[in-house]
């Protein structure tokens, strides 16, 4: 018998039938998504395309 992250869900804290909704995770990751998009738009469109000597060929 192998150990045990593969064992069936025990009753102590699995929350029974109710599924756990990671609402805090969703909120955190939404913040992360917003930071990524803003940072990307800045670095690509302003920092990169705004530079001298753009390689065109």
């Amino acid at each position: 018998m192998s150990r045990t992250e593969t064992a069936g869900a025990p009753a102590d804290d699995a929350g029974g039938d109710e599924e756990f909704d990671p609402v805090g995770t969703l909120a955190l990751i939404a913040v992360y998504f917003a930071i990524l998009v803003i940072a990307w738009v800045y670095i690509y469109y302003i920092e990169f395309l705004g530079r001298d000597l753009v390689v065109v060929g």
Partner: peptide, 21 residues
């Protein structure tokens, strides 16, 4: 070319070509 987008590798046996304005 420091601080610009003109940047390439110079590899022996190969010729890198970049055009800038």
């Amino acid at each position: 070319v420091a601080g610009t987008n003109a940047n390439t590798m110079a590899v022996p046996g190969e010729v890198a070509e970049i055009t800038v304005e």
